[in-house]
Every structure is written in C-alpha cells, then in structure tokens.
Design a protein around this nucleic acid. Structure first.
Lengths: 146, 146
DNA sequence: GTAAGCTGTAATCTTAAATCTTACAGGATG
DNA sequence: CATCCTGTAAGATTTAAGATTACAGCTTAC
C-alpha cells in the first residue's frame, strides 16, 4: 500500500522546474540527475503531467515549464495525473474470499462501500495542499542550509 | 502504495467473529477458509489484533471473540494493529535524490513535512469508521442476497 | 498422562508488482 | 542532415507481499 513514490518524484520535478525552468532548459536527463530516477521514468511522469495540463513540454526541443502558477497546482491533480487509480487502490481488498461463506460472499462489496468516505476525505485533503506551499517550504529549507 | 489487504482481511475476520463467534469456535483454520488466506497469515493478523486488545484468543484452546463491542472498534485501531507504519508509508518518498542538487538535498524533509496533514486527516477519517457500521452494512447485504 | 487440536513464530520459497534498462521512432533546431 | 530532445514499447531486474513448511508450547478430553 502506498500512494507511490511517483507522486514524490513528480513533486520533486515540479519544484525543480519552478526553481530553474526560467534559467535553463530542464530536460528529462537533468531531472533524472536531480531525482536519482531513470530518464525514462521521468519522461513517463512528465508526459503524464503534460497530459494533465500541469506542465508544458515542447516536443522535439524539450525544456519543461509549469503550465499553471504554483498556487493553482494541488496534490490531487499531481497524484491523479501520475497514478490515476491511486485513490481506488488506497485500501486493498483481498481477492479470494470463499463464495461458500456468507461473509465471504459479501465482504468485498461491504468493504468497498465502507471505504468510500476514506477516499473522499483523502481527496479533499490532497486538494488542500498546493505546490505553492511546497515551494515555500523548500525555500525555507534551502535558506537555513547556509 | 496502498494500505494493504491485511486490513481488509482483518476486518473480514472481525465481522466473521462477530457473526459466528458465539455459536462456534472460530479458529485460524476456519477463518482461512472464509477469507481464502493462509492459516499462518490469519494467525499473524489475529495475534496482532489480540495484542492491540481488540480480540481475545485463549492460547492452547483457541476460539476468537471480540474484546470490545463493535461500536468501540474503529478502522484506525485495526490498521495500526496489523500494519503499524501504514500511515507513515502512505506517501512514499524516493530514496536517492542527488545531494549535489539543492532541490535534491532538501526535497525529502520538505515532502515529509508537506505530507503531514494528509496523515493526520486520514487518521481522523479512519477513526470515524466503526466496526458497527461494517457489520450493519454486512447484514444489509446478506439480507438482500435472498 | 498422553494424544489431539490450537496458537505463536521463525525460515524459506513463491509470486506479483514496481522500477530500470535497452531500443527506437519522430519532431525541432542550428 | 546531424544533434538533441520527447514519447513509448518490450524485456530484464529488483523488491515487497504472501504462502508454505516446520515446530515449540499451552489446554482440554479421554
């Protein structure tokens, strides 16, 4: 379980782009060096963010930019972009309960229904957190580094 | 990503115990048949629930019972019992960002801090859901089965 | 008092999921 | 037209989760 590291890597990339996108061409190669992930993995993530309208990436020439100001990018958009079914998979349900048992026959539907509020609440929590806050927290951390 | 299936299997067991615990001796063997999981896996889960004070299991003789009424058992207790660090792992952070990059050096701490509200919110959501509701939902589902 | 039926737990094997790697087609730029 | 990108697919690799096997310890029934 876990909303995978993809989301964290994507945020890393977005912060990086916010910080350096104006000064230099941010390529998948560069992001791979900063994140420690494979360039192909990065390209996959960035491609997803592009499709979701969060970044712009000129095809052919490269160099990613934020498509929206950081106060308009929230964690929910990022998660959904890079991992569309993260919320659905939040609480896993075991796959092979016995159809011979009354509990086994019904447990899946019962649990799915019971978990629904969790998904809704988490979705709301994710929407509340903006890239702005993360960038600000980064500035603070980078500041106190000296 | 994902709060694992353990939690779902544990809930399955708790519902089963609630329904049948009074009538028959609920053993790991029986629960394994209903859930489709291995008896050893079940014993591990039940042992964790026992340590958390959610069920009682006479050692030697067997036969699990709920230690609390279903309105006093919430999802948070169950999750924490069977998977103590589920909340910590909710949002994974990538492990090897470059220490040579300012973003890479700070991203871990920044993200951990930014994710904190998510964990708190989810914890609150989990606490709101009681075994009572799940048992009720089960009764409803089992009813309409006929 | 001993045989049968449980639990608790460790060690190993298996299986499934995530990630990396390699490879290549296609657009843009100088 | 050579170079530097992105976008994807296919296969290999790594890692985490579960299953399996095995066995010691407690309890009750006979």
């Amino acid at each position: 379980m876990q909303i995978s590291k993809k989301c964290s890597v994507a945020l890393h990339c977005l912060v990086f782009i916010h910080e350096y996108g104006a000064q230099q061409k941010v390529t998948s190669e560069l992001l791979s060096l900063s994140t420690g992930c494979n360039p192909v993995t990065i390209r996959g993530l960035m491609s997803a963010l592009k499709k979701a309208g969060l970044v712009t990436i000129p095809f052919g020439t490269g160099g990613a930019q934020l498509a929206l100001p950081p106060e308009q990018i929230d964690l929910y958009s990022v998660c959904r972009a890079v991992e569309p079914d993260a919320l659905e998979k939040l609480m896993g349900v075991h796959g092979s309960p016995s159809p011979l048992c009354p509990v086994g026959r019904n447990i899946r539907a019962v649990l799915e229904r019971s978990y629904e509020p969790l998904r809704e609440d988490l979705k709301a929590s994710l929407k509340k957190i903006k890239l702005r806050q993360i960038v600000d927290a980064y500035h603070e951390a980078a500041q106190s580094e000296r």
